[in-house]
Structure formats: C-alpha cells, structure tokens
Design a binder for these strands. Structure first.
Length: 605
DNA sequence: GACCTCAGCGCG
DNA sequence: AAAGCGCGCTGAGGTC
C-alpha cells in the first residue's frame, strides 16, 4: 500500500451517510462479522462487526439488532463468503432474514472471474491481486486458534477488521464492474441464488444415531484388535498399517512380495488398495488381507468418532457446505464431509464400513433421496451431439450395452464369465459397473491401460474394446479432443448455462471433465433454488432439502405429509428436470428410507 | 508446537 | 509424452 493505511476511520453515522451514492442507486457497504468460533450451529457467536464504504471509510462496532435491521433493510451488503455472515446475523437476531436481503459475495465473484485460485480466501486473493500485506493476518491468526477471534487483543482486532472489510470492498470494486458488463452476470447471479438454500440445509443438519454409532465403533474396535494380533503373529513384529513405509518393509523386504507399482511423487513402493488387492489375488498372503482390513476399519473408527463429536451438542451434524468448493463449480462439504460417506451397496472397499447407518431422519420424518440418472453421460451426449448415444440413453441402459461390447465372449479372456459369454444385458452387475467406469474413462480421454484396469482385461483387448465403442459412438469419441482444442485456443470452456471455467493449456486434456462437472453443478444448483421456492410454497417448508451430493439431493419429509407425497414428487421432479438449453432429457431416480441412510428403498411413482 | 507434503481412501 | 476428473480427511514423517 505504501502510504499508510488503506482505509479511513469513521463513526457509524458518518459511514452510513457516506454509503449513500448519487441518484437512486441503493447505498452499498462492505460487511464482515467476527465470531467466537467457526461452528455457528454449536455455539459460535458474533462479538463484533465491521463496515466499509466504497471509499474505504470504515467502522468497527459491537453487534446491534437495531443497526443490523437497518443495514438489512436499506443497504446492499458486500460480503466475502456471505453464507457465513448471513447465518451469524440470523443467529444473533433469532430469525430468518436472508431471503429478503440484497447482497453481493466477493468469493463467488472471484470464482466467476477466475476459478483457478487454489483458495479464494480474502487475504490470499488480495495478496495475489495487489500484494495487500498479510502480516496482520498472521499476527491475528496466531492468537485466534481454532477460529475464536474474541481472544485477540482489541486494538489488534480492530485494525484487522478494518483491513478485512476494506479488502472486501476492494474486491467488489475490482470484480463487480467486470462481471456486471459481461456475459457471465447470469452465472454469478445463480451463485448468489444458491447461497440461501444452502444456508437452510446447514441449519437443518442431519440427525446422528448416536447409540448405533457407538455400537458400530465398538464392533469395529473388536475386529481391529483381533486382526492386529493376527498381523503381528504373521509378521513376527508390530506393524503400523497407517505407515506406508512400515507396510512396504513388511510386504516387499520381509515377506518378499513383488513391487507392482511405485508412488507417483516420491517413487516409493506403493501399498495402495489396488496394489494390495492384486497381491491378494495373486499370492493370497494373509498379511495383505489383514493390512486391508485393519486400515479400513481403523479409518472407519476415526470417521465415526468424528460424527459423535460433531453431533454432541444437539444430536445433529451441521456440515459446512461450500457452494463453490471446486474449480469446476461443484459444491463441496466439510466438517464433516458428508459427500463421501462410505456405502455398502456399491462399495469400493474390500472391507466396507456401513457408515451410512449412523444417520437417520429426524423424529416424525423419512428420508427421500433423489438423484439424476446418468447425468454425466447425458451431458457428454448433449455436447457431443451423438445421436446413437442419445437414442440408447432414452430407450435402454447404455452401461449394460457397453458391458456387452466390452465383454464379448473371448476365448482368451482371463475371466471365466466372459469366456463363457455370460454377459447379457449388463449381467452380472459387477461387469456393468466396470463397464460404466470404462465408459467414463473413454469419454474423458483415458488410455487403453486405464480402460484395461477398469475392465480387468488385457491392454490389447481394451484397445479393441475402446475402438469398437468409439466407432459406434463417433460423437463421444471426438468430444474430449474438441473441448480440449477450445481450451487450448481460448483458455476456457463455457457450460450450456454460461459458466466460464478457465484451464491452462497444459490442463486442456481435463477440459471435457471440467465442462461436464461444471454443467452438472449448474443444474443441481438451479434445482436447489427451484426446490427451495417450490417446497416453501407447496409445503410451507415442511418438506426440505438437507444435503446436495453432486448429482443427488437428500430431503426429509414429515410422515404426516406422506399422503401428499405423490403430488409433491411431481413438483420436485419439475424443479429438477425442467432445465433449458439441453438437447438430452434429464431423469431422476427416487429412493426413500424410514430408518437410516443405509437402508434405501426404491420409490415407485 | 505449527506447518508442510505425501500417501492413501471415501464419495460423485 | 501421456494423462479420466473433482473434492475432504487422516496419519506419517519431515522442517522450522
């Protein structure tokens, strides 16, 4: 900054007055709250807030209902990660106000302007854009361990708050003119629109079956003790399964198994799941089996204990859902990540943990799970304009069809079921699932080697399978290269709904994947906004969303509303599948559960 | 003690 | 030259 502070200090009246611009434009203020922690739904509270005008006249004050109400009513508020500030203000006021507020979010702006930043944090962004100093951030953060900023000395905190609102206004003044006059304004407005529905999901949370979770932990614990003793007997020493080095010493030095693969970065002998499964199949050494088991179950215990910890306050987990978590525009979930809870029906793990048993609908409610059927392949087909694939999607099961191509009876195949020509209409499911993975690998530019691994066939067979697939679906075969070409020349792709996704030239091979993920993200976000409005209107908010999982939304429905559910589901379907700009129709699958997330049952319309 | 990178692994 | 991609979380092992 060079010439003193990048902001001025004023009193509240002066700041509120100075915010009023010329003419009829509503007054605008940057707004930032400070809280005693990061978990708003388990006790964190506002202890201070800060305001900044366009010309960086700043004010720092203690929270006040009167002032907050005035700000909400009369001003456009600019926030960095508005979801947090809005939720904190709502907790302070004790009521919902976010639906009626006018606001901007500079974090969303940053993502629209350039999605490639590793983090869109305020300090990091302002540093990279104009070298705004970060010494103060370091100082404050060294005081505010675990997110409690109330322990920071007041004068230090005061200065820090002024920096923060000033930075927020700086970002707004940099980004907003660029977005406002660009074709990306709509994409930005969609990001704003999804913030409030996301807040409502975090607020609702998901109920944890605490006793069942404790029982599950106990049973895993017993298994781990037993398996650990067995491994110790086999190895003749204690083994730390969480230490890749220790496991590698055991398997490769002491037992003498062959090194099938090395790690990507440091080139150490790999002890990853895939390698271990191959070793298990080839050599059936009991140590390998026990390592797999102990690793999986230890991880499960840690994960489940986290669920207990996070639900201790009110029996519910209120995760943090980041509306723009990924560079592609996808949402992300943390504290905990409920988007990667292990499943047992289509488990990827050799020792799957039934972690979804830990979650139940709140009393008097049932779970509803609605996902888009094969949305990625539908979107690829849309962009690829592949007529045969479109027809296949609308009339049959494309992955079952792919399984028939990939697993055509072949005398040379190692798989007995393939040799016998067992594959018909995608049976068995194992082969259909593998075929599905192979289809996506081919679509996204995977090589014969990857296809061979996903299908469990030789590289030569995979090359042939791939060629045959691409010949049948020429559009699909071309699309990855075409989109990569666009990125190479323009540095970005745009989704069918106008979201820009920038990629460097070196990353252009990722372009199709980014385009598809980004488009699916657009769709589920629009769906969430539609659903929030519709469910509010049709059920008074009694039916509600609690979690988005990329192509799926989890809802809860009160039992007393079950009789209306067929009608409500028609409305929900409309909210989810009625999307403009797409040449391939969208479809949804509906499941429900009255007990836990683990026990899903199909729902027939 | 704080912070980093890496390997490993769960989901879409 | 070739590569399916995108996340968040944990523990190990290292540095400062």
């Amino acid at each position: 900054m060079g010439r003193g502070q990048p902001f001025h200090t004023g009193n509240l009246a002066a700041v509120l007055a100075a915010a009023r611009g010329k003419g009829a434009a509503p007054p605008i203020l940057a707004f930032d709250v400070e809280t005693t922690g990061t978990h708003l739904y388990t006790g964190a509270k506002i202890f201070a807030y800060a305001l900044a005008t366009k010309r960086c006249l700043t004010y720092v004050g203690k929270p006040s209902k009167k002032v907050f109400k005035r700000l909400i009513k009369d001003y456009v508020l600019v926030m960095h990660n508005a979801k947090f500030d809005l939720a904190a203000v709502e907790r302070f006021l004790g009521k919902h106000i976010a639906e009626s507020i006018r606001f901007h979010d500079t974090r969303a702006q940053s993502h629209i302007v350039d999605n490639r930043h590793k983090t869109h944090g305020l300090a990091a962004l302002c540093w990279s854009l104009c070298q705004w100093p970060t010494e103060l951030d370091k100082k404050v953060n060294s005081f505010a361990r675990h997110g409690d900023y109330s322990v920071v000395p007041k004068d230090l905190m005061d200065e820090y708050q002024r920096h923060d609102v000033a930075r927020t206004m700086f970002l707004h003044r940099l980004f907003w003119p660029r977005i406002q006059s660009s074709k990306y304004k709509k994409a930005y407005e969609r990001e704003l629109a999804v913030i409030v529905p996301t807040m409502r999901m975090e607020e609702k949370g998901i109920m944890v079956r605490r006793k069942a979770t404790k029982r599950l932990i106990d049973s895993l614990h017993k298994d781990v003790i037993k398996a650990t003793e067995e491994l110790r007997a086999i190895a003749g020493r204690p083994v730390n399964v969480n230490s890749p080095g220790d496991v590698a010493s055991l398997l490769y030095d002491e037992i003498g198994l062959p090194i099938l693969q090395r790690t990507e970065i440091s080139g150490q002998p790999s002890t990853g799941k895939h390698v271990l499964l191959e070793l298990r199949d080839k050599y059936a050494h009991p140590a390998v089996e026990r390592v797999l088991e102990i690793r999986s179950k230890l991880k499960g215990i840690v994960q489940l204990e986290k669920y207990l910890e996070l639900s201790a306050a009110d029996g519910f987990i209120h995760p943090s859902i980041n509306p723009i978590g990924a560079t592609t525009g996808r949402e992300a979930c943390s504290n905990p990540n409920l988007q990667n809870v292990a499943r047992t029906d289509t488990a990827r793990a050799p020792y799957p943990i039934p972690a979804r048993k830990c979650f139940r609908p709140r009393p008097g409610h049932i779970f509803l799970f609605i996902d888009y059927a094969g949305i990625e392949l539908r979107l690829i087909t849309h962009y690829a304009k592949d007529k045969r694939m479109k027809h296949l999607i609308m009339t049959a099961d494309p992955h079952a069809f792919a399984a028939e191509i990939f697993y055509k009876p072949s005398k040379r195949s190692a798989d007995p079921q393939i040799r016998k020509g067992y594959v018909r209409a995608g049976r068995p499911k194992r082969l259909r699932d593998s075929a599905k993975n192979a289809v996506y690998a081919i679509c996204y530019g995977g090589g014969a080697k990857t296809v061979a691994e996903t299908l469990g066939i030789t590289v030569e067979e995979a090359a042939k399978a791939k060629a045959e697939f691409v010949k049948l679906f020429p559009g699909i075969g071309r699309i990855s290269r075409e989109v990569a070409e666009t990125v190479w020349h323009q540095g970005r792709v745009e989704t069918a709904f106008g979201r820009p996704i920038r990629l460097s030239g070196e990353e252009s091979y990722k372009a199709l994947n980014a385009l598809i993920q980004g488009t699916a993200a657009d769709i589920i976000k629009m769906a969430q906004v539609n659903l929030h409005k519709y469910l509010q209107k049709a059920t008074g908010g009694e039916v509600f969303q609690i979690l988005p999982i990329h192509d799926e939304i989890v809802f809860e429905v009160p039992r007393k509303r079950l009789k209306d559910l067929p009608d409500i589901l028609k409305g929900i379907e409309q909210c989810m599948v009625d999307m403009p700009n797409l040449s391939v129709p969208l479809e949804i699958d509906i499941e429900y559960s009255t007990t836990s997330w683990e026990d899903k049952k199909p729902w027939d319309m």
